[in-house]
């Protein structure tokens, strides 16, 4: 990177005071307009979780909340009827957790080890194998649906959360290996050589030298995997049904079925619940989220 970067220099801070103030005013005005557009949907939905149903039906989603009440949240969580069962989204929320947490942990651990091997224990053909693994990032899921259905059926994991975990681990390892391998490339080879001369072997170097340097990429991988798996819909809707479905599939199941009376306020609360875990992770680890984006995309 250059000695001084563009970030050190504020182009708009030159010239006359009046010019500077006008320029800054335009910048902030535009930013505010865009920010309102980006925040609008989430604000609207949040507001509607609090409104009584008849109010929504009468005036639509875009209206000032009257008689706010938190009761729809409770209903959405535990008593709302989806596909005949009236247990709210709590079951599907837990399904998603039971799927996303193990799949995230397993794929991240595998990615760390693979990345370590493919960057620091390179052997003939290692780059080719790395290419093969990362092709999984780009493979459209439609190419894998029928084979997966057959595999899951034959190992007895049809319509199980374990089956979804397997699917997400295999797909996720492509991502985590890509992240970790590229991150580990920046660790100097001399460190590994020094450790080998110091008598450390494969696992000891991994545990004592590489893992202690890994927290940034572990955070990136965990955020990226958890968000991706939580938000995934296609595998969830095809490989599971009924009360085994993850929350994305459940949301489509109740809000997509256009017939019957709509409970917009409860549905809005359910939608917010589906969005909350990844949003929470994003707000807590935003910096790493961006870093994951950059390293995943620029590669």
């Amino acid at each position: 990177m250059a000695e001084t970067t563009h970030a050190d220099f504020d182009a708009l801070s030159t010239g006359s005071l009046r010019r500077r103030i006008t320029a800054k005013a335009i910048v902030y005005a535009l930013l505010t307009v865009f920010a309102l557009f980006y925040l609008m949907p989430i604000v609207i939905i949040l507001a509607n979780t609090l409104r009584p149903l008849d109010d929504i039906v009468r005036t639509g989603f875009i209206a000032w909340p009257a008689d706010p009440s938190l009761s729809h949240w409770a209903e959405a969580w535990s008593t709302f009827c989806i596909g005949g069962t009236c247990e709210g989204v709590s079951r599907y929320f837990k399904n998603s957790l039971a799927m996303a947490i193990p799949a995230t942990i397993i794929s991240t651990m595998l990615g760390l080890i693979n990345g370590y091997i493919l960057s620091k224990w390179r052997f003939r053909g290692a780059d080719l194998l790395f290419g093969l693994i990362t092709l999984g990032v780009f493979l459209p899921p439609q190419m894998t649906l029928l084979p997966w259905a057959w595999v899951l059926g034959n190992v007895g994991l049809s319509n199980t959360i374990s089956g979804l975990i397997l699917v997400h681990v295999v797909q996720g390892v492509s991502f985590t290996t890509l992240f970790c391998r590229n991150y580990f490339l920046a660790i100097p080879d001399d460190l590994i050589k020094a450790a080998r001369i110091d008598g450390a072997g494969f696992w000891r170097i991994f545990r004592r030298i590489v893992l202690p340097l890994s927290p940034p990429i572990v955070i990136v991988a965990v955020i990226w995997q958890f968000t991706g798996i939580w938000n995934e819909f296609l595998f969830g809707t095809i490989f599971t049904s009924g009360d085994k479905q993850p929350i994305t599939a459940a949301i489509v199941a109740f809000s997509g079925s256009g017939t019957g009376e709509r409970h917009y306020n409860v549905e809005a609360a359910a939608v917010i619940m589906a969005a909350l875990p990844p949003l929470f992770i994003y707000l807590v680890g935003g910096k790493y989220f961006v870093r994951g984006l950059t390293s995943g995309a620029v590669k």
Partner: peptide, 18 residues
């Protein structure tokens, strides 16, 4: 950037209402 953290399913549902 926050929309990117939200699933397409949630995004689609919300914007359909709008």
């Amino acid at each position: 950037l926050y929309p990117l953290a939200i699933s397409f399913i949630v995004t689609g549902t919300v914007w359909r209402w709008i």
